[in-house]
Protein backbone atom coordinates (compact mmCIF):
# COMPACT_ATOMS: atom_id res chain seq x y z
CA UNK A 1 0.00 0.00 0.00
CA UNK A 2 1.30 3.47 -0.78
CA UNK A 3 0.17 7.06 -0.39
CA UNK A 4 -1.30 8.68 -3.56
CA UNK A 5 0.78 11.37 -5.26
CA UNK A 6 -0.54 14.77 -6.27
CA UNK A 7 2.04 16.07 -8.81
CA UNK A 8 2.45 19.78 -8.36
CA UNK A 9 6.01 20.52 -9.41
CA UNK A 10 7.83 19.86 -12.66
CA UNK A 11 11.09 20.06 -10.76
CA UNK A 12 12.10 20.53 -7.14
CA UNK A 13 15.58 21.90 -6.42
CA UNK A 14 16.91 21.31 -2.91
CA UNK A 15 20.16 22.72 -1.58
CA UNK A 16 21.91 21.10 1.41
CA UNK A 17 24.45 22.68 3.73
CA UNK A 18 25.19 25.18 6.44
CA UNK A 19 25.80 28.70 5.09
CA UNK A 20 27.64 29.56 8.30
CA UNK A 21 30.38 27.05 7.44
CA UNK A 22 31.75 28.77 4.35
CA UNK A 23 31.78 26.40 1.35
CA UNK A 24 29.25 24.11 3.00
CA UNK A 25 26.83 26.86 1.95
CA UNK A 26 27.33 26.08 -1.74
CA UNK A 27 23.97 24.28 -1.84
CA UNK A 28 21.94 27.24 -0.60
CA UNK A 29 23.99 29.66 -2.73
CA UNK A 30 23.24 27.71 -5.89
CA UNK A 31 19.56 27.37 -5.03
CA UNK A 32 19.30 31.16 -4.63
CA UNK A 33 21.02 31.75 -7.95
CA UNK A 34 18.89 29.19 -9.77
CA UNK A 35 15.73 30.68 -8.28
CA UNK A 36 16.67 34.06 -9.74
CA UNK A 37 17.60 32.60 -13.10
CA UNK A 38 14.56 30.36 -13.54
CA UNK A 39 11.75 32.77 -12.72
CA UNK A 40 10.06 31.96 -16.02
CA UNK A 41 9.19 28.51 -14.73
CA UNK A 42 6.42 28.67 -12.17
CA UNK A 43 6.40 24.94 -11.54
CA UNK A 44 9.86 24.70 -10.08
CA UNK A 45 10.07 24.45 -6.29
CA UNK A 46 13.11 25.61 -4.31
CA UNK A 47 14.23 24.66 -0.83
CA UNK A 48 17.38 25.05 1.27
CA UNK A 49 17.96 22.85 4.32
CA UNK A 50 20.96 22.01 6.48
CA UNK A 51 21.01 18.31 5.66
CA UNK A 52 18.80 15.63 4.13
CA UNK A 53 16.03 15.03 6.64
CA UNK A 54 12.87 12.93 6.46
CA UNK A 55 10.54 15.92 6.63
CA UNK A 56 11.54 17.02 3.13
CA UNK A 57 9.93 13.87 1.78
CA UNK A 58 6.64 15.64 2.27
CA UNK A 59 7.82 18.62 0.21
CA UNK A 60 9.20 16.50 -2.59
CA UNK A 61 6.49 13.94 -3.05
CA UNK A 62 4.68 15.97 -5.73
CA UNK A 63 7.76 16.57 -7.85
CA UNK A 64 8.12 15.10 -11.34
CA UNK A 65 11.90 15.44 -11.05
CA UNK A 66 14.30 16.39 -8.27
CA UNK A 67 17.68 18.07 -8.23
CA UNK A 68 19.72 17.99 -5.01
CA UNK A 69 22.66 20.38 -4.65
CA UNK A 70 25.44 19.83 -2.15
CA UNK A 71 29.06 20.66 -1.42
CA UNK A 72 31.69 17.93 -1.31
CA UNK A 73 35.23 17.54 -0.07
CA UNK A 74 35.95 15.13 -2.92
CA UNK A 75 38.19 16.30 -5.73
CA UNK A 76 36.07 16.58 -8.88
CA UNK A 77 37.07 17.12 -12.48
CA UNK A 78 36.10 20.72 -13.34
CA UNK A 79 35.23 21.20 -9.66
CA UNK A 80 31.66 19.97 -9.97
CA UNK A 81 29.57 17.03 -11.13
CA UNK A 82 25.97 16.33 -11.98
CA UNK A 83 24.91 12.72 -11.74
CA UNK A 84 21.80 10.64 -11.55
CA UNK A 85 21.04 8.78 -8.32
CA UNK A 86 18.86 5.81 -7.46
CA UNK A 87 16.79 5.12 -4.32
CA UNK A 88 18.81 3.57 -1.49
CA UNK A 89 17.46 1.81 1.56
CA UNK A 90 20.12 -0.76 2.32
CA UNK A 91 22.58 1.53 4.08
CA UNK A 92 20.47 3.24 6.71
CA UNK A 93 22.38 5.68 8.92
CA UNK A 94 22.10 5.50 12.72
CA UNK A 95 20.46 8.89 13.01
CA UNK A 96 18.57 11.28 10.82
CA UNK A 97 21.63 13.54 10.87
CA UNK A 98 23.29 11.17 8.46
CA UNK A 99 20.59 10.68 5.87
CA UNK A 100 21.69 10.88 2.24
CA UNK A 101 19.83 12.06 -0.88
CA UNK A 102 19.63 8.39 -1.92
CA UNK A 103 17.91 7.44 1.35
CA UNK A 104 15.46 10.34 0.97
CA UNK A 105 14.69 9.07 -2.51
CA UNK A 106 14.23 5.56 -1.12
CA UNK A 107 11.76 6.88 1.45
CA UNK A 108 9.77 8.60 -1.31
CA UNK A 109 9.66 5.33 -3.20
CA UNK A 110 8.50 3.36 -0.17
CA UNK A 111 5.79 5.84 0.79
CA UNK A 112 4.48 6.74 -2.66
CA UNK A 113 5.33 3.59 -4.55
CA UNK A 114 7.62 5.36 -7.04
CA UNK A 115 10.45 7.83 -6.99
CA UNK A 116 10.99 10.61 -9.51
CA UNK A 117 14.11 10.87 -11.67
CA UNK A 118 16.65 12.58 -9.45
CA UNK A 119 20.08 14.13 -9.87
CA UNK A 120 22.68 15.39 -7.46
CA UNK A 121 24.82 18.39 -8.31
CA UNK A 122 27.96 18.29 -6.19
CA UNK A 123 30.46 21.10 -6.08
CA UNK A 124 33.91 20.76 -4.59
CA UNK A 125 34.47 23.04 -1.59
CA UNK A 126 37.79 24.23 -0.17
CA UNK A 127 37.10 25.63 3.30
CA UNK A 128 34.39 24.36 5.67
CA UNK A 129 35.40 26.46 8.68
CA UNK A 130 33.36 29.19 10.33
CA UNK A 131 32.33 32.01 8.02
CA UNK A 132 29.44 33.12 5.88
CA UNK A 133 31.20 33.65 2.54
CA UNK A 134 32.13 31.08 -0.04
CA UNK A 135 35.79 30.92 -0.99
CA UNK A 136 36.55 32.49 -4.34
CA UNK A 137 37.50 29.10 -5.79
CA UNK A 138 34.25 27.51 -4.64
CA UNK A 139 32.26 30.45 -5.96
CA UNK A 140 33.92 30.11 -9.35
CA UNK A 141 33.09 26.40 -9.44
CA UNK A 142 29.55 27.11 -8.30
CA UNK A 143 29.03 29.67 -11.09
CA UNK A 144 30.26 27.22 -13.67
CA UNK A 145 27.91 24.56 -12.28
CA UNK A 146 24.99 27.01 -12.21
CA UNK A 147 25.48 27.95 -15.83
CA UNK A 148 25.49 24.33 -16.93
CA UNK A 149 22.59 23.44 -14.66
CA UNK A 150 20.41 26.21 -16.06
CA UNK A 151 20.95 24.79 -19.53
CA UNK A 152 20.26 21.31 -18.24
CA UNK A 153 17.02 22.37 -16.53
CA UNK A 154 15.75 24.35 -19.54
CA UNK A 155 16.43 21.50 -21.90
CA UNK A 156 15.01 18.95 -19.50
CA UNK A 157 11.77 20.81 -18.92
CA UNK A 158 11.20 21.09 -22.66
CA UNK A 159 12.30 17.62 -23.65
CA UNK A 160 12.97 15.18 -20.84
CA UNK A 161 16.52 13.87 -21.03
CA UNK A 162 17.50 10.30 -21.30
CA UNK A 163 17.66 9.26 -17.67
CA UNK A 164 21.11 8.36 -16.57
CA UNK A 165 22.77 11.10 -18.58
CA UNK A 166 25.77 12.56 -16.80
CA UNK A 167 27.58 15.78 -17.43
Amino acid sequence: MSVPIDPSWDLYIVGFGNPQRRDDGIGSYIVRQLKSALTAYDKIGFLSVRHPEPSIVDELHGAEQILFVDATIEVLTNGWQLHRIQPELEMLPYTTHHFTPMVILGMIKMIYGQSPPTWVLTVEGCDFGFGRRLTSTAKKRARSAISATIGFVRANLQTPLIWGQTF
Binding site: M1, S2, V3, P54, S55, V57, D58, L89, L92, T96, V103, G106, M107, M110, I111, Y112
Partner: peptide, 28 residues
Protein backbone atom coordinates in the same frame (compact mmCIF):
# COMPACT_ATOMS: atom_id res chain seq x y z
CA UNK B 1 17.81 -4.60 13.26
CA UNK B 2 18.37 -3.86 9.57
CA UNK B 3 14.59 -3.57 9.22
CA UNK B 4 13.64 -2.45 12.75
CA UNK B 5 14.00 1.25 12.02
CA UNK B 6 12.05 4.15 10.57
CA UNK B 7 12.58 2.88 7.04
CA UNK B 8 11.16 -0.50 8.04
CA UNK B 9 8.12 1.29 9.44
CA UNK B 10 7.77 3.28 6.21
CA UNK B 11 7.91 0.07 4.22
CA UNK B 12 5.08 -1.56 6.17
CA UNK B 13 3.04 1.42 7.32
CA UNK B 14 3.69 4.23 4.78
CA UNK B 15 0.58 6.23 5.63
CA UNK B 16 1.28 6.25 9.34
CA UNK B 17 4.92 7.12 8.72
CA UNK B 18 3.94 10.01 6.47
CA UNK B 19 1.48 11.29 9.05
CA UNK B 20 4.20 11.15 11.68
CA UNK B 21 6.53 13.13 9.44
CA UNK B 22 3.79 15.74 8.88
CA UNK B 23 2.94 16.00 12.57
CA UNK B 24 6.58 16.64 13.35
CA UNK B 25 6.66 19.19 10.57
CA UNK B 26 3.84 21.20 12.19
CA UNK B 27 5.95 21.54 15.33
CA UNK B 28 8.97 22.53 13.26
Amino acid sequence: PAERNVVGVIGKYPELAMKGIRMRKLGQ
